[in-house]
Nucleic acid binder design. Structure first.
Lengths: 145, 145
DNA sequence: TCAATAGTTTAGAATTATTATAATGTATAT
DNA sequence: ATATACATTATAATAATTCTAAACTATTGA
């Protein structure tokens, strides 16, 4: 979603009423240069800081999930104990920094096309995603292959 | 872990007392031909069925996590709402069937080596894993790239 | 414009997955 | 055999998420 766009219009387009909570969420999520990775808690914190009024946790959960269903954000599976979301909804790859728990997009050009030489009978591939776990170079080193 | 091995000895090797609960868990997890993917609930159900005695949920949680720390099993991040474990602890790739919620290993030879052309300064790669989501061919089709 | 209504937000309760606790039970070393 | 350290258990606690029902608000159309 481009910067500074008309969030009220965008919300109407997908059949959502442009309430002030939703418009504020759009600003926090989409009014930025780069892809944004967040957890529900991150979002509640940021919205609370930017609004004179408190926002309910349930509203943030509900609205994020509506946005997910409508394709505005996408959930990333990294850690089964926390839900991470991404404002980049295309299938793409990530670094996950195990020290800081930060997600970083991997540019499509920085990874070769993945070719799966086998398929599951009767099943179609929906997505192929790579997760590269990284950590500080001078500690916590594990082998990989 | 090979089939029909001495679980009591294996447990002792990593400093775990071979209680009947742990031996039973070993049998369920490792006494099989192929890699096994499971959730804690799967395991409780299977163990309960195979033992005359009930096993506590907490024991299964605790023991699975001890096994994980000791490198007998490995957690797989697929779905942020459920923890999947795998008896294949090497870094490898998976199909995830979105219809049945089943995990299937991808053989190393069925996927080309992944080459990441960029790195994060000061960070070392710990693992590279690919997740291929599949679903029934005649429904639920999404584009991928 | 302004009420009717359909949809939204909210606080708090409910649910689910997981972890901690404290009492009881058991494997092991001596 | 017995003491002791470690395990198991039922249950309580916690954390993340979802549900609920009442209050609130944006939209529609008279």
């Amino acid at each position: 979603m481009p910067k500074n766009c008309n969030f009220i219009g965008k919300l109407r387009e997908v059949g959502l009423r442009p309430t002030k909570q939703r418009v504020k969420m759009c600003e926090v999520l989409f009014n930025r240069e780069k892809t944004f990775h967040f957890t529900i808690n991150d979002l509640v914190k940021m919205i609370s800081e930017q609004m004179n009024q408190k926002i309910s946790l349930a509203t943030v959960y509900n609205t994020v999930h509506v946005f997910e269903k409508k394709g505005y954000v996408k959930e990333i599976s990294i850690d089964s104990h926390k839900s991470y979301f991404d404002t980049n909804t295309s299938a793409h790859h990530h670094f996950f920094d195990e020290d800081t728990h930060q997600l970083i997009d991997i540019d499509k050009k920085d990874i070769d096309k993945i070719n799966i030489k086998k398929n599951i009978p009767g099943k179609k591939i929906n997505s192929i995603e790579v997760l590269v776990r990284v950590a500080s170079d001078n500690q916590n080193q594990k082998k990989f292959n």
